[in-house]
């Protein structure tokens, strides 16, 4: 996706400082003071994680911190909301992965 640099009522966005960060070991550029969710979407990334149990893909849903759908790992801190966390230079962001569900597998095999 691209950015909305000009707007008929809000006007133009002026030059902003750029920072770089990593998402799943790939480097992306973001504007200073923008959220991880906005920066990734601007870079064309919608998928932020997979569901821990089912492995199905997830992205932002509410974008204001209510739903927890955009949870990612930021500098080692798990379950951080991408929509409320501002990108910082050198930040390491990782998507959520599918986790083993040993008990469910045991139940299924009975």
């Amino acid at each position: 996706m691209s950015r909305i640099l000009d707007h008929p009522v809000f006007g133009k966005i002026h030059e902003r400082e750029l920072v770089s960060f990593q998402f799943d070991e790939k480097t992306y550029q973001a504007y200073k003071d923008e959220t991880i969710a906005a920066a990734l979407l601007a870079n064309g990334v919608r998928k932020l994680r997979v569901h821990e149990e089912s492995g199905t893909p997830r992205g932002i849903y509410c974008n204001i911190g209510h739903c927890m759908e955009c949870r990612v790992t930021v500098n080692g801190q798990a379950n951080t909301r991408a929509c409320l966390t501002v990108v910082e230079q050198g930040m390491i962001v990782e998507s959520g992965k599918q986790l083993p569900n040993i008990i469910k597998r045991m139940v299924e095999q009975r």
Partner: peptide, 12 residues
Amino acid sequence: WTLPGVMSIGAA
């Protein structure tokens, strides 16, 4: 509705 790209109208 859990697919990336589905969002609340407020999110948009």
